[in-house]
Design a binder for these strands. Structure first.
Lengths: 349, 349
DNA sequence: TTGTACGCGTTATCAA
DNA sequence: TTGATAACGCGTACAA
């Protein structure tokens, strides 16, 4: 029997299962069986294989393995943003779950860009990932691409930013409910003129937090005043400008409290409040949303809400793995509880 | 001609190059050639292939591709920590470079654990990554595993935490030089009794920053006083305790300024200084290291240094890609410039 | 318990 | 310009 001819040189001289097999005069299959912990293999050969695999420094080639098993043991993660602490914490949660399994993480940053997100999804498909964890870029309008992926038999779990009415699992907080609770907290302080600095209403977060705000007012029979709702967007500058508008336009009556759509907007608003000579929370109370690292260090520490990014990551990863392992795993919208972080800016001592 | 028999059902019915080829009565090779933009293919067939590939929703299988080309177009990234802002920013830098190429990122978190780091490296090898970007876990002592990887023909570039004298490329700041400059800044304020809260001297960062501190003192002919060097470790609590030791032990003479090994240690120390009734910077000036997000919001804003994590990530990725593309790319220790962030804690106005 | 043949989806090689 | 064939390294199915 003529030995396999190794005429063509290989780039790095990687050890294959065949090398191990040849070394001890056994077939590749036996090596494969040992390394995959199949039962039907003699104890003696098992040890011999294990030993020489170790000695030769054999590293199984997952790529070849994936090709034949049609399973990559890889899950793709698409993240729209990495700068702030939220998504890194989500990633940490995902990692801690995935770490305990055989799966690996293919990581792509969409940078809040629909085009990049689409390219990312395509890349993940090309790499035959077993599932995808995705938080939508804010500019995304069309859901067709997600459908296409699912129809091709790939699992998707959304985290934080969900595409609704799409029949896919999703893990997020309940923005409406959380905004309702925060507003309720302000109302319990006795405040009645409560303003809302809303995010863009083109984004579900913006819409939902506004809804929660309105819901709380209605529940407490407080008359809605459209002048008290100003679109600030999600950043400091917008918060600053929106707050100025509030303080200047309604000269007769400034709001007694403010629900900002998130902490950055709240920071901007706080600056505007101070610049206009008002005190926080004595003249105007304010609460934020998202537990920005800076919120504890603001001149008046900001009351806000922790969105539990770590938990979101963990639960999303767990759900995806369950979808992969079990075709009958039900589609679910998992709500992660938020944690209110009460500081001085709302008027609490 | 009998159609290929698809008797065995395939999991998700993925479209392959063969499907595209059969559709227009051409060979798989032609399809392959078109999709790889090879020159020698008739314009007519090229268009037909491209068109039906699109129509059928063909997605090339990178795994099969990798198997035959022995190139995965994947680079592995090992990160020791994700909680603080430094590493996420590094990742962002890596991503922005890699995004412009065909490469993908396989991401693993070592959680500062040597065992996990070793497992991570093994996983990356199994997945046939073309190169590895790694920041060593702090507990790592043995470099043998890195050598093993390189000998197997895989490229490694270290970032931030480098294994020296190992003949591998590395991208980091110059800790000695930066600590020297920071200490020099304190000296220029006229301070003479300058203490150093050092990190663990088992870690190169700890050793180097101490060296830079000593270098600056020597350059300015300031006598070294071992009592002024206290090991605080890298966290708030250690900084607090170390500072207390400094303020209590040397009762006769408290230090006029402090170089903390990093910002968290500085925060702890600042608390201790305030608790003991001293003022910052009037009684004791202090500088940190690493530009923690909180540093701008401390009661006395902290003078510190930005380690340019984004730049580190970018340059590390660029260097690795060059190593991969060019076997003759020289091994290099690339120094990223730091940026001094002057605030009030050092005594500057 | 072990081995043989074959295929996973693609590219390299050589021939047509 | 195109196609047939043989890998790439491994697992599945079946035979020995």
């Amino acid at each position: 029997m003529k030995k396999h001819n190794r005429s063509r040189p290989r780039k790095p001289n990687r050890i294959t299962a065949e090398d191990v097999a040849r070394e001890i005069g056994v077939s590749v299959m036996t090596v494969s069986r040992v390394l995959n912990k199949k039962a039907n293999v003699a104890e003696g050969t098992r040890e011999k294989v294990l030993h020489t695999a170790m000695r030769l420094g054999y590293v199984p080639n997952r790529i070849a393995q994936s090709l034949v098993t049609r399973k990559s043991f890889t899950i793709g993660v698409i993240v729209p943003e990495i700068s702030h602490s939220f998504f890194p914490d989500v990633i940490r949660g995902i990692e801690e779950v995935v770490y305990t399994t055989r799966y690996n993480l293919l990581f792509i940053h969409s940078a809040e860009d629909q085009k990049r997100e689409e390219a990312a999804i395509q890349t993940l498909e090309e790499n035959q990932v077993d599932g995808i964890l995705i938080s939508m870029a804010q500019t995304v309008k069309k859901y067709t691409i997600y459908r296409r992926v699912v129809e091709s038999g790939k699992h998707i779990v959304f985290y934080d930013r969900c595409a609704r009415r799409l029949g896919m699992s999703c893990v997020s907080i309940d923005d409406i409910e959380t905004a309702r609770q925060l507003t309720g907290h302000l109302i319990q302080h006795g405040y009645k003129e409560i303003a809302h600095l809303s995010g863009s209403l083109k984004v579900s977060i913006g819409r939902d937090r506004l809804k929660g705000y309105q819901k709380a007012l209605i529940e407490h029979n407080i008359a809605m005043n459209d002048e008290l709702i100003v679109e600030s967007g999600f950043h400091e500058m917008g918060g600053y400008n929106a707050m100025k508008v509030l303080l200047e336009s309604s000269k007769k009556k400034i709001p007694r409290a403010v629900l900002a759509v998130n902490d950055p907007a709240a920071f901007g608003a706080m600056q505007a409040i101070l610049d206009m000579g008002y005190r926080i929370p004595e003249d105007i109370a304010i609460v934020g949303f998202s537990n920005d690292v800076r919120s504890a260090f603001a001149p008046t520490p900001l009351t806000t809400v922790n969105q539990q990014p770590y938990d979101i990551g963990r639960k999303a990863a767990q759900k995806l793995l369950r979808h992969i392992d079990n075709p009958d795993e039900p589609v679910e919208h998992i709500i992660v509880n938020t944690e209110h972080i009460i500081r001085r800016s709302c008027g609490c001592p």
